[in-house]
Simulated scan of single mutants.
Amino acid sequence: MYRARGKTSIYPMPQARRHTYHFLDYAKEFKAVYLDTEIDMSVVKQRRAESTVTGERISYIVYLIEAISRILQRYPEANASVKHGLIPKMAVYSNVSAKFTMDKSIGESRVVLSGLIADSDQKSVEEMQKVINYYREREVNDITEFKGVRKLQSLPMWLGKIAYRLAMGNLESRDKLQGTFTITSLGHRPIQAFYPIISNTLCFGVGTIEDKPVAIARQIVIRPMMKLSLAFDHRAIDGALAADILAEVKEFLEFDSSSIQKNNEEIEVSFIGS
């Protein structure tokens, strides 16, 4: 598979990368526009520290999924997908589901795969963390949900392209494959901003958390800041709505966690108003 020193090797697309190839080929239909903001992660860091005392350690990505899922409850028109074609169609989903990406290994290849948290707006952070742990702690061949990916990788390239497009073209089931929003992170490396390629209406890119000087009440203080980007499909929503969503996710994450109900069954985001 890999070239020997002094020699160029040409070979068919490796099976482990075929799902990514088909995804990128299909993603050309989406019309992405990008926004970003910086978030003070002090409250999230405090919540995370408290979780190690009361139970399982919660990852940062879970708190982000929680915030996005709760905010999307307020914007059902963004919880949607568009189907390209002679007669374009649009589906608006009643459930909120989060697709998240992860690094996995298939043989000698390092690849990106995605997991799904169904009904993420109804789950506690502890429940969501268990889902993420399930994907992270198992080998690819031991994850039942990757059966379709393994099948796609085994198909000839021309047939895999057809199969992928048929699956994604079904608006009624697309949310079960792709979620209703995506979150992807390079925050484990010193990457400040990440602007992802999208395969649904909303995709959030997460950068690293860095201590930075910020001005608060005319005083310079050091706060843990994180860049959060949003790529959105302009066919489905406009920039003003996307900006509202991103701004309210920021407010949710920066809001004082002491007023958030611990069971996460119902969260009153009083800073947004109604």
Rank of each mutant, 00 (worst) to 15 (best):
K147E: 08
D25L: 01
I132D: 02
S51M: 03
R47Q: 14
M41N: 01
K262G: 15
V96F: 00
S114F: 14
S229K: 07
K250H: 00
T20H: 12
V43C: 13
A4H: 12
G148V: 05
P190Y: 12
V44A: 10
K83F: 06
Y2M: 05
L241F: 14
L116S: 07
I87E: 02
P88Q: 07
K161D: 13
K227Y: 01
L116C: 08
P224R: 05
Y93D: 08
K31N: 11
K104W: 10
P156N: 10
Y195K: 00
T20N: 13
R17V: 06
A243V: 02
E145Y: 01
G148S: 01
S173Q: 06
V221M: 04
M168N: 15
V82P: 01
E172F: 13
N133L: 10
G115L: 09
N95F: 15
P12F: 06
H19A: 02
V112I: 15
R47N: 12
V92T: 08
V44D: 09
S173G: 02
I272A: 02
V33K: 03
R48C: 07
R136Y: 13
I58D: 02
R174K: 12
A98V: 09
A167Y: 00
K123L: 15
S229Y: 12
M157P: 10
I220D: 02
R3L: 05
V140Q: 01
G239W: 15
S69W: 00
Q178F: 10
V111M: 14
H22D: 04
Q122C: 07
L155Q: 13
L202E: 00
K89N: 04
P76F: 03
L228T: 04
G115Q: 04
E127S: 13
D25G: 04
A236Y: 12
F271G: 03
D40K: 01
L155M: 15
F146N: 04
L246E: 03
R189P: 03
V96A: 10
A193M: 09
K123T: 06
A247S: 15
P12W: 00
I198E: 10
Y135D: 07
E172D: 15
Q122E: 13
Q46G: 10
W158A: 04
T101F: 07
N95Q: 15
L35E: 04
I216S: 08
F181P: 00
V221R: 07
S258Y: 05
A80M: 09
A91F: 05
